[in-house]
Amino acid sequence: MIHAYKMNGYNIIIDQNSGCVHSVDEATFDIINLYKEKSKDEIKAYIIEKYKDDPEVTPEDIDTCFGDIEALIADGRLFAEDTFEQTAAQFKKKQGVLKALCLHVAHGCNLACKYCFAGKGEYFGPKGLMSLETGKRALDFLIENSGTRKNLEVDFFGGEPLLNWEVCKKLVAYGRSREKESGKNFRFTLTTNGLLVDDDVIEFCNKEMGNVVLSLDGRKETHDRLRCFPSGKGSYDLVTEKFKRFADARNQRDYYMRGTYTHYNTDFAADVIHMADLGFKELSVEPVVCSGTEPYALRQSDLTALKEQYEILANEMLKRYRKGNGFTFYHYMIDLEAGPCIVKRISGCGVGTEYLAVTPNGELYPCHQFVGDEKFLLGDIWNGIRRADILKQFNECNIYSHKECKDCFAKLYCSGGCAANAYHSTGSVNGVYEFGCELYKKRIECAIMLKVAQAEENLKVEY
């Protein structure tokens, strides 16, 4: 299977099952598109007629093109077969080994963002902070259940984790104290709304946190409309300067500005560009996930505009690359040379298998998006998993368990999509969130267009 598309003046062929990307001229684009449907003689006649006014398209050129296509097919780089399906199930069986925890150190927040999937940070339950003892037990649980894996990850999450900052710092120290004897390396990360960021937080994070995620939605009016205090007052002015200081202190590396876009800003490219103009270099925005009845919920009628925004953003990034003052966008960061292995691509984020969320009182859920939904309560960090039946649903979750994904060119990039989004939109973790798929495919097209442009123009991504 191939996916052929045109964007920004480039003719692009994505070979679905090999991961190869080909940039081609107009005539070759047509030839490859017809290659599996017509005979060579039919293709040749069609191309000669279509390009009769183009002196660069000769019968000899077309024959050479056929030869190039055949060589690529023989090399497994074009029209490659899908040889992974039979081994997908056994890949997944190997994944009952834990390697990452989302540590909910605070169920509570100093903001009351209107779109918060966690119900203003409280996950539709009582407020609470994780105790140091519970946190230590969570790290022990991770070590005990991580098998031979050496690299372990812990994200301090909430609510707002900085409401429980002293415990976070002590847990980092505890994790470090266990590294040598357990033979593990901890990678700690933090997700924050920024209100409590100060010199202590910045200094500690720069020393100990492999990544920090800083929540900013873009332009002031966009951010303040939904990221506000219980009083309704916006938070943009209070966090922006702190975030700038934080990002600069990290030398503009190993952090993400992370925004959410909604029906209120279907022109979200302007919000990303605003963050770039503030000096931030590592950017990301995500579509809001919420009930369709919310006034800010994205709707089907927004889809065309949203796709255009991804192209506008990619073109702006390309302009800035040419000037040497680019920025990165999370969804456009694809590694065409040394990307993830096929196992990772088939099995995705590891929800409910390699990755679990821990609540302040030590309960275990498949991931942060399921916390608070009792149907997905797996057990706790003292007694382990009690609901193997729930885990089984996630264990069986891979791109080959979604029949809708079978012929999708993006399946080895999206890995079947987000199980939580699938559950919330279809009622099944093995469902397919079609709205999300449409956006994902567009992002992949844009990301690969940028790769093609960089290759064709010999551009380096410098920032």
């Binding site: 940039s23 001229d25 005539a27 093109c65 390697k99 690299n151 196992v343 064709e456």
Partner: peptide
């Protein structure tokens, strides 16, 4: 005419 081809578990990668 111009094909330009751009390119040709251990569990340790990031989640």
């Amino acid at each position: 005419m111009k094909i330009n081809t751009l390119n040709s578990g251990c569990g340790e990668c990031q989640t």
